[in-house]
């Protein structure tokens, strides 16, 4: 087995982080050790973001990036298909226009929004909530919510 050594990036708390494109979700090319820009070289439409290992999207997972004002900052290509909205229309709109909490057993109706604000503003660990697209019933997704950046925001990865 050929296992090459590679550098592991860590955040300010020493936790390993993973880099991914905010649009196509893929990691930057290995040759981009010191890129001149954050623009993804693969798709040219996303900026390279970082998230703690475990929350960063894996290949093909749909995700959204939401800031502390709960406005959508980025929508991955997969999430565009899943939510039926192009990124250019979703950006700068409130996240509740696209996703709502689907956890009927939850006593707190604002669970999703609270988790998002917490992830976008503090160093809390990853949380999992159940969400559904607005105006769609019978469709539920488990969503991992955690911090990402820069700039600091909340990452919502939808698990199909």
């Amino acid at each position: 087995m050929n296992r090459a050594l590679h550098a592991v990036q860590i955040d300010s708390h020493g936790r390993p982080v993973e880099a991914f494109c905010g649009h196509c979700g893929r990691p930057p090319e290995p040759s981009d050790t010191q890129p001149a820009t954050r623009v993804c070289r693969r798709c040219g439409l996303g900026l390279v973001l970082q998230a703690p290992k475990g929350i960063a999207p894996q290949a093909g997972e749909p995700f959204l990036v939401v800031d502390s004002r709960l406005e959508v900052c980025a929508v991955s290509r997969k999430a565009e298909d899943l939510l039926g909205v192009p990124e250019t229309r979703a950006v700068n709109r409130h996240v509740s226009e696209f996703l709502v909490s689907a956890a009927v057993e939850s006593s707190k109706p604002h669970d999703l929004l609270t988790q998002l604000v917490t992830a976008a503003t503090s160093e809390e660990d990853v949380h999992t909530v159940v969400v559904r697209p607005v105006d769609e019933f019978g469709v539920r997704y488990k969503a991992r919510i955690g911090p990402c950046g820069p700039p600091r925001a909340a990452l919502v990865v939808l698990e199909e």
């Binding site: 900026l47 800031d67 990124e87």
Partner: peptide, 13 residues
Amino acid sequence: AFEQTHNVSSAVR
């Protein structure tokens, strides 16, 4: 704007 946003679309805006 690339330093302050999360994707090219937001940066353009």
